[in-house]
């Protein structure tokens, strides 16, 4: 059967899509920063010499790595509001789920990155009288972050893709908007194709950049 593509009807609703895209970017930026910062904290705690820090961090990481992020989002949207003394918006619920999930995954990246640094670097830092905190901040992390860049960028890409899950609880992200457009003008093909291509166009250059980065690191190290 011959299908006549008609992107005009999507163009008509471009403003709705644009609103969706800005909402996607909003939740992405929140989750990226919150997720990576919390991930760094969890990664450090997981690597800590103190057991009361190490243990809860390990539980957190394992729990959020081993449950689906959509389940976490549903939990925060449908279950958490009953326990919490305040209102939970779709944005908050989705951002909480994605942030905690990303924190668990990036914690493992940070931990792995820190562990690849030669123990001699710690000794050298201690030998010139630096404290743990100073060695970590000034010697270990700057070296580790360089090696972790490809994995962290990949995490960022995953977070961007994950933001679409917010549409499942009616957060007005770009996918949710596309769904709306498809339901008013009855042409889901164009609406979803546009969104798929938009994601590919935005993310693929970053993917290529990580490939290049991995090659450069592979040569350098």
């Amino acid at each position: 059967m011959e299908y006549t593509w008609d992107f005009g009807s999507v163009w008509e609703y471009r403003e709705a899509l644009w609103v969706g895209l800005t909402n996607t970017l909003r939740i992405f930026v929140i989750c990226l920063f919150a997720g990576l910062s919390l991930g760094l904290a969890m990664g450090l705690a997981r690597y800590s010499v103190r057991r009361w820090l190490r243990w809860p961090a390990a539980c957190f990481i394992e729990f959020f790595r081993n449950t689906p992020v959509l389940v976490q989002i549903f939990w925060f949207y449908f279950a958490f509001p009953i326990l919490a003394p305040f209102e939970i918006s779709a944005l908050m619920a989705a951002a909480l789920g994605i942030t905690l999930n990303s924190a668990a995954f990036s914690a493992e990246i940070f931990r792995g990155g820190i562990q690849t640094i030669d123990p001699g670097q710690w000794e050298a830092g201690r030998a010139i009288g630096m404290r743990y905190r100073e060695i970590m901040a000034r010697i270990i992390l700057p070296q580790a972050v360089r090696r972790m860049m490809p994995a962290l960028t990949n995490r960022g890409i995953e977070i961007f893709k994950m933001t679409t899950l917010a549409s499942a609880i009616a957060y007005a992200d770009v996918l949710h908007q596309a769904r709306l457009i498809a339901s008013v003008n009855f042409n889901p093909i164009e609406a979803y194709t546009v969104v798929a291509i938009a994601f590919f166009v935005i993310l693929y250059p970053i993917v290529r950049a990580t490939y290049a980065l991995e090659r450069r690191l592979a040569k350098g190290d």
Binding site: T164, L175, Y192, T193, A196, F199, L203
Partner: peptide
């Protein structure tokens, strides 16, 4: 298929 969100793919196959 690695770079686009799976939910978008699912909607595409389901609705389009």
């Amino acid at each position: 298929f690695r770079t686009t969100p799976p939910l978008v793919q699912l909607f595409w196959f389901f609705f389009a």
